[in-house]
Computed example of a mutant assay.
Amino acid sequence: MVTPAMPAVSFQNVSKTFPASRGDIHALSDVSFDIEQGEFFGLLGPNGAGKTTLISILAGLTRASRGHVLVHGKDVQSDYQAARRQLGVVPQELVFDPFFSVRESLKIQSGYFGIRGNAAWIDELLEGLGLADKAGANMRQLSGGMKRRVLIAQALVHKPPVIVLDEPTAGVDVELRQTLWKFISDLNKRMGSTVLLTTHYLEEAEALCGRIAMLKNGRVVALEATSELLSRASSNVLRFKTDQALPLDLNQLARVTGRVVQLPAHDALEVERLLARMRESGLTVQDVEIRKADLEDVFLDLMQGARGVPQVRGEGASA
C-alpha cells in the first residue's frame, strides 16, 4: 500500500477573531484545506475575504484564534523555525532596506537562513528576474517594479519548497508579470516547488493554477480544480460596446465596464433572445462577439451567491 505524500500546506479548522469596540470581527471561520506538494494553487476572494489574514497565519505573522497550520508537517506556531524555513513569502507591501545594494540585500537574506556560498543561486535569481544589470544598484534607486522583483528574489534566496505570492503583480508592468510567471512556473515544473498565489488578476489564476480555493467573509465557498470551476459557468458570454443606457431588464443581468457590456448566455437561443431584445430597444452597439465564460464569470457568480453559504469541501480538503 502506497502512503500518500504529506501535504505541502495544511490548514486545519483555522479561525481568526479580532476584538473590536462594536463586537468581534471574525476574519476566518473554520477554514480547512490542503495544498499538495508541487501544486500551483490559487487563493481568491474579494477585499476583506480573509486571504491576507490566512497568509499572515501561514507565515507566522499572526496567530490563529483556533486551529492549526502545517508546512510539510511542521506547525507554524509550535515549530515556527522549521516551518519558516520551508516558506518563501512575497508580501503585498514594498518593504526594503535603503542602505544596501540588490546583491547585498540577497546576501544578507541568505545569512538570515544560515546559508553560505549562495552566490551561484543569487546570480540565477538576478538573471531570471531581470535584475542582473541592477545587482550593484542601491535599493533606493530602483523603481517600484524593480523593488518588487527584489522582494521576490529575497523570498526565493533560501530555495524554499513552498512559495507564497500575495498579490505579486499588483501595480506592476506587463514585462514584470511575464518575467515573474516564466520564472515561477519554471521553479514549479523543474524543482517541484509548491506555489500558493493570491491575485485579483483572475486571468493569471486561470492560466497558472491547477486548483483554486475561493474565500468570502472568512469562509471557503469553492475548492475545486480550475477546470471544474470553469465547467460551472454559463457556456457563453455576449460581449459588446455601447454608449447608450441599457434597458432595465438587460441592465439587471449585465456586467458593465465603461462602454463594455457582458451578458451571460447559456445557449444559442438565449444569444438570439438577447440580440432581439437589443434591436427592440433601439440599442446601438459595436464590436459584438460571443466568448466562452472565464474564471472571472465564475468568481462573480460565486461571490454574488455566497451569502451565508457554508464551507465547501472539495478534492484535497481536510475531513
Rank of each mutant, 00 (worst) to 15 (best):
T169D: 10
Y112K: 03
S318H: 14
R279H: 15
V102G: 09
E104P: 05
L129K: 12
T179V: 12
R279P: 02
S231V: 03
P160Y: 08
R239C: 15
D75T: 04
L106A: 06
A83I: 06
E296K: 10
E175V: 14
V90W: 14
W121Y: 15
S101L: 09
T52W: 08
D97Q: 11
A222E: 07
I115Y: 08
G38W: 04
L250P: 01
R22F: 11
L253I: 02
E206C: 02
L202D: 03
L125W: 09
F18Q: 11
N47W: 10
V76E: 09
R232M: 05
L295Y: 04
N217P: 01
V195C: 05
L197Q: 12
S56I: 02
T179E: 11
G45R: 05
L44P: 03
T52P: 08
K189Q: 11
E204A: 00
V172Q: 09
R177P: 03
S78R: 15
V288N: 04
E36I: 01
K189P: 00
V285D: 07
T198N: 12
L165W: 13
Q244N: 04
R85W: 00
D123I: 02
P4S: 09
M214E: 03
H200D: 04
L197F: 07
E127P: 06
S65L: 02
T62M: 12
T242G: 02
S101I: 03
H72I: 06
N188C: 00
A207I: 04
L295W: 06
F99L: 11
K51N: 08
I290T: 14
G218K: 08
L87T: 02
A233P: 01
Q252W: 03
I55L: 12
L215S: 07
L223G: 01
G88I: 05
L87A: 03
S10G: 02
L215W: 07
I163W: 04
E206S: 13
E272Q: 13
F100H: 13
A233G: 14
V256I: 10
A207H: 14
Q286R: 15
I163E: 06
L125T: 07
G48C: 04
S185Y: 09
D243V: 00
G316N: 09
L263G: 06
I212H: 03
E127N: 13
V285I: 15
D173W: 08
N236T: 15
G145Q: 11
E272M: 09
L94S: 08
S235E: 15
L126W: 07
Q81R: 15
A205H: 06
D166V: 08
F113W: 14
G314K: 07
V260F: 02
R148F: 07
V237Q: 15
G45H: 05
V271W: 03
D79G: 07
E175W: 08
L269A: 13
N236A: 14
V14Y: 02
S231M: 00
R239T: 15
